[in-house]
């Protein structure tokens, strides 16, 4: 990292003096030469890059044609960024690309991988072109590397940011989905809770259930916590509050699937389990609910 920084600082200054070269032979001039080379060999280098991507088994979720199309756009944005020294266009493209490929399951390492491959393909082509003039090759690489690093960084960061945004969105959606209030019979709701409950989710769950009780005119609610592995005191308190709030609306709550560990937590925070209506499993809970509602108890239809 520290090395990168040093390199980029040097690269922004004319490298001429120290090497005793003409002043006009600056980084900018070298980059111009480099850009001209990349433009000239666009088709060849782009093709080689795509071959390397496929060989490395990256972007497997995409067809070769799709990879080629995206590679063309990335290649052109890449050259443009080298030419102009501005990264906004590339950044925008990286975000746009991420938006399209994230839903298809493209992973961060793949995106980083293809950008590093392009860097490699281009570096090899520079070796081939300037191998006769070792000194010039060195100067070209000095000018190219910091810019290439910055490009790789821009694309990777853009992808990760977009991915985080998508993950946040999905988490919100899952939150909604993972607390379904199900009506199995008239006046009977089931709330199967699965996964980790944090205070925020516990609150959302309670509010959803209370609204559900009102809109479905529920008299009995079975809260099944078989799928909840652990519960700290704060969340256990929320569970107790949910039971109490449901009762204030006129609904009886039956809690099923209480693990010995969670029962222990409830006792520790001072919950009188005798006052809480608990039944071993969901089936038993539904049967008791049906008895409370005056249904003849039989197998669920």
């Amino acid at each position: 990292m520290a090395k990168d920084k040093q390199e980029s600082r040097e690269a922004t200054q004319p490298v001429g003096d120290a090497a005793g070269l003409p002043r006009s032979d600056t980084t900018a001039a070298l980059l111009r030469e480099l850009v001209a080379h990349l433009r000239q060999n666009r088709n060849l280098l782009r093709e080689e890059w795509v071959v390397r991507i496929v060989e490395a088994r990256l972007l497997t979720a995409m067809t070769r044609e799709e990879i080629f199309a995206e590679a063309t756009s990335v290649y052109d944005s890449y050259v443009e960024a080298l030419e102009t020294g501005t990264f906004e266009a590339l950044q925008a493209y990286a975000r746009n690309l991420s938006e399209r490929i994230i839903p298809r399951g493209v992973e961060t390492h793949e995106v980083v991988g293809i950008v590093l491959l392009l860097r490699d393909v281009l570096a090899r082509s520079l070796f081939a072109k300037y191998q006769a003039d070792f000194e010039k090759l060195n100067r070209i690489l000095d000018a190219y590397e910091p810019a290439a690093n910055r490009i790789a960084n821009t694309v990777a960061v853009g992808f990760v940011q977009e991915r985080e945004r998508v993950i946040r969105q999905q988490q919100e959606a899952i939150r909604e989905l993972s607390t379904p209030v199900l009506q199995v019979r008239e006046r009977l709701l089931i709330l199967p809770i699965i996964g980790v409950i944090d205070p925020q989710r516990a609150r959302q769950l309670t509010e959803q259930l209370l609204r559900g009780i009102r809109t479905n005119r529920a008299k009995v609610v079975v809260i099944d916590i078989t799928g909840v592995a652990a519960m700290d005191a704060t969340v256990a308190n929320h569970l107790v509050q949910t039971v109490e709030a449901s009762r204030l609306l006129g609904a009886t709550v039956i809690v099923t699937g209480l693990s010995p560990e969670i029962a222990q937590t409830l006792v520790t925070i001072g919950v009188d389990l005798g006052k809480m209506n608990t039944v071993g499993d969901l089936q038993g809970g539904i049967e008791q609910a049906e008895r409370l509602l005056g249904y003849k108890v039989g197998p669920l239809g």
């Binding site: 309670t206 509010e207 209370l210 609204r211 009780i213 009102r214 509050q241 109490e244 709030a245 449901s246 204030l248 609306l249 006129g250």
Partner: peptide
């Protein structure tokens, strides 16, 4: 008792 009111009460 309204749902929001019940929620505030138990708090």
């Amino acid at each position: 008792i309204q749902p929001e009111v019940a929620f505030a009460m138990v708090q």
